[in-house]
Amino acid sequence: MTSTNEHSTPLFSAVSGSTRQLFQLLRCINFVSKAQVRITKEGLRFTAEESQVMQGAVVLDKALFTAYSYSPPAFNEDEDEEDAESPPFQISLSSLLETLQIFGINDVKDRWSNRETGYNGLNGLTARGGPAGVFENRILGMNGICRLSYAAVGEPLRIILEETGVTTTCELVTYEPEYQEDIPFQKDAIAQKIIMRASWLDDAINELSSTSPARLTLVASPIAPYFTLSSSGPLGSATIEFSKDPQLLETFQVPRRTINTYKYSLIRGASRAMALATKVSIRSDEQGVLSLQFMIEVDGGGISFVDFRFVPFIPEDGEGDEESEVGEAEGFE
């Protein structure tokens, strides 16, 4: 079905003035090397999956781009898809991130200050060295332009980065998707919903790392202790307890007590999003699937969301668990 016509309009193209935003968001799901991309009218949806028990998703909303065009293929009418959507594809996430930071996106601010001190060092004695940065591209709002394009299904994803007259063109090979389904999360059967500052969750998760745990247990309860995270390791156990203080837990909807256990190292996989986000919504459904939704305010305005889903360990004896370290962690206390 790949009919390449160089002169026709590409299936998808977008221009972004700030690669930093894209980079920051995509880095949140950089826990596996490949990500699946789905292009819609509303934006680009990147998902990454680990062993079918953890999933991270980022939507690069249309609003993040200065120009965004998506022209679904005409033959789509034959297929009975609800939306005019091209089939998803996979790309190497690590390569994409590498590409986006080719001009040093990672530490734009540091680079900026470094450069300034560099100037001072060079012109150390001349006073006019001071305002050297007036015509900096950053000040002029020209700090790198990123063009994304995807000519047709099966074509590579093309990324063109321009900064100060230097143009880099990268073509990332697209792969057939390995998985189609998201981890099911029953939005109509939510057992618990807690919204809090993401940095607090990040602190708590980091705090627990001292026991070098294999598992993390989340307990939410309508009576005290309201929300606890706990873990245990060979040297002891640790528990972090949150009170219901509205300053602490902005939203606390827990109709009944829930106990779920997740693999600690997977939760740690979301730590980049935790550190970056302002707020997190912690939800779990009746089956114990955990959804962590992070609200991230990227610099330059706008709010984006990064979503994570985790499949819990089977409660009690863990009969169906394939994790080998389960037994040790279980036998501790």
Partner: peptide, 23 residues
């Protein structure tokens, strides 16, 4: 109770309580 545990409770603002049980 579970024996041989040194329990360290760190009480923070807003009612965050961090409890460690060390063997």
């Amino acid at each position: 109770q579970t024996e041989c545990r040194l329990i360290v409770k760190i009480i923070c603002r807003h009612g965050v309580i961090k409890t460690y049980k060390l063997t």
